[in-house]
């Protein structure tokens, strides 16, 4: 890892990179992408209390259409029986089933997903349409023991761990904007992956940090999530 890496070194950037730079973030490369490694020190503990990470540069893709699920099955993808649940694939990729005809595939924190690469290169039959979720949607991770309290301030759906199991998905309104919220714990660390329109992620980032303040939450780098595994 090269500690002097710049967030603008690749064409895939997060809409938030200027905010990260203002917070003296140190960027590293993760797989094929560049993300915030850390801002300050001891972020592993901070993440256990309450942290917000920007994972927008990591891989993800969607497939939609009447033939999407059958095709994915043929390609060896395992997806849940019910919509609004996600399941983990052998290579670490998480497959979220958003409806009877739509899947969202999310790479792990390595910055590389063999499954996504394979599906992106595969021939698609009719009625299977790719969705460029890495471009259209930002990806934030809200983690720590106070994450449910924070979400309760900005979301009407009950996302507390006792009512919202690991792997469940809520497509709902978060701080008044549309979001896909997926509970994807990291080891024992409660974690919510949040996907929302890239064009309003600066607003969402600021709103979540504001909501986190009372629980002493702060931004954390991707390394803090990896270290908690």
């Amino acid at each position: 890892m090269d500690p002097s890496i710049s967030p603008t070194q690749t064409s895939r950037r997060s809409s938030l990179y200027r905010r990260h730079s203002q917070l003296n973030a140190e960027f590293h490369s993760f797989g094929e992408t560049i993300a915030v490694h850390h801002y300050g020190s001891d972020e592993t503990t901070q993440a256990q209390n309450l942290g917000l990470a920007d994972l927008s540069t990591l891989p993800r893709v969607g497939f939609k259409g009447a033939g999407a699920l059958a095709w994915a099955e043929q390609c060896g993808v395992h997806f849940p029986q019910q919509p609004n649940w996600a399941s983990k694939q052998p290579d670490g990729t998480l497959v979220a089933r958003l409806s009877s005809s739509e899947l969202l595939m999310i790479g792990d924190y390595s910055g590389h997903s063999p499954l996504i690469d394979r599906l992106a290169a595969a021939d698609r039959p009719e009625r299977v349409y790719p969705l460029p979720r890495a471009d259209s949607h930002s990806w934030l991770a809200l983690c720590g023991s106070h994450a449910p309290d924070t979400l309760a301030k900005v979301c009407a759906v009950d996302l507390r761990p006792q009512h919202f199991e690991n792997g469940r998905i809520a497509q709902t309104s978060l701080a008044k904007i549309n979001a896909i919220i997926l509970r994807s714990d990291i080891g024992n660390l409660t974690n919510y992956a949040i996907f929302s329109d890239s064009s309003s992620v600066e607003y969402l980032w600021d709103s979540l940090l504001d909501a986190m303040a009372e629980h002493l939450g702060s931004p954390v780098g991707l390394q803090a999530l990896i270290d908690n595994r």
Binding site: N84, A170, T172, S173
Partner: peptide, 9 residues
């Protein structure tokens, strides 16, 4: 698909 939600959604 998503269950009971606020009308504003």
């Amino acid at each position: 698909l998503n269950g009971p939600r606020n009308m504003s959604e």
